[in-house]
Amino acid sequence: MNEIWQREKQLRSHELYNGQLFSIDHCDARTIVGWISEYRYFLAQRREPSLHAALKIKPLAVTGILSCPDGVLFGRRSDRSEMDAGCWELVPSGGVDDTAVGSAGRVSIERSVLTELEEETGIGASELSAHSRAVALVEDPQSHVTDVGIMLATTSSAAQIRRRFAALEKREYSELEIVAPADVGAFRRARVDSLGAVSAALLDTLMQPGLRSGFLNNVFEGAILL
């Protein structure tokens, strides 16, 4: 594992940071229980998938389904991204780390998604028009990452969002797209080969016929450290 980390540092030392992440031990429809691991172990597992049997790193992440008056927000990830480089995905998206840990070891999923929202779009929590709502859990079997899908809404227009995005000093996305609700299905089909697996699974779930307002009824409550 140390050899993998040292090799990666030589390849991209200016981009690599050994942060901490929340790894899932077990979960159900309402609660996730896990522990804090180091990013270097997850990276080693990605480079050598056979290491998963020993390391058992299953990162927890968040994906926001952000709606504004003009539609739903998508972003194309930078080609330098470790995860899904060059792919489109729902915005905001990102991993849950130790900064989300609160009292008694309870992890705030809401804090994580709001942090990602501001970092990736420039939109603050005060600009949201409704409380965030967790609606789904989606696991990527290849990366072992489990995302909590969270509904978000803002009154900011597409033009305002683009201006905020353009003003960011550091961008995780090369471009943004705001897709009208009626066109989300067509957007999904047109990018079948360039849409991230988690975002694709969330869209397929939320667009299922028969789900009230297109949303799941099960509500995820939170994550707790072992």
Rank of each mutant, 00 (worst) to 15 (best):
L152G: 05
R133A: 13
V135M: 11
T115H: 13
S129W: 02
A125Y: 11
L152C: 08
L152S: 07
A153C: 12
E120M: 06
S143T: 08
S143I: 00
G124T: 08
I123F: 09
A125G: 12
V148N: 02
S132V: 13
R111H: 13
A100D: 04
V101S: 00
E139C: 14
L117W: 06
S156P: 09
E118G: 14
A104P: 07
G122R: 05
L128Y: 01
R111G: 07
T146C: 01
R106I: 14
V101T: 01
E139S: 14
A125D: 12
G124Y: 02
V107H: 03
T146Y: 00
A136N: 08
R133K: 13
Q142H: 14
L137Y: 04
T155H: 09
I150K: 03
A104Y: 14
G122N: 06
G105V: 09
L128P: 04
G122M: 05
A125S: 14
E119L: 14
V145T: 09
A100S: 10
V148R: 01
P141Q: 01
D147T: 11
S129P: 03
E120Q: 11
T146N: 00
H131P: 14
T155Q: 09
I123M: 10
G122T: 04
R133N: 11
L117R: 04
I123T: 10
R111M: 11
T121K: 09
A136V: 07
V148D: 01
L128F: 01
G105W: 07
T155N: 09
A130H: 09
S126F: 13
S126E: 15
Q142G: 12
V135H: 11
V138Y: 08
D140G: 06
I123S: 08
I150D: 03
T99M: 12
G102V: 03
S126H: 15
P141D: 03
S103D: 14
G122I: 02
E119F: 10
G102K: 02
S132T: 15
E116T: 02
M151Y: 07
M151A: 10
A130D: 12
V148C: 05
V138K: 09
G122D: 06
E118K: 15
V138E: 11
S129K: 04
E116P: 00
G122W: 01
E116Y: 01
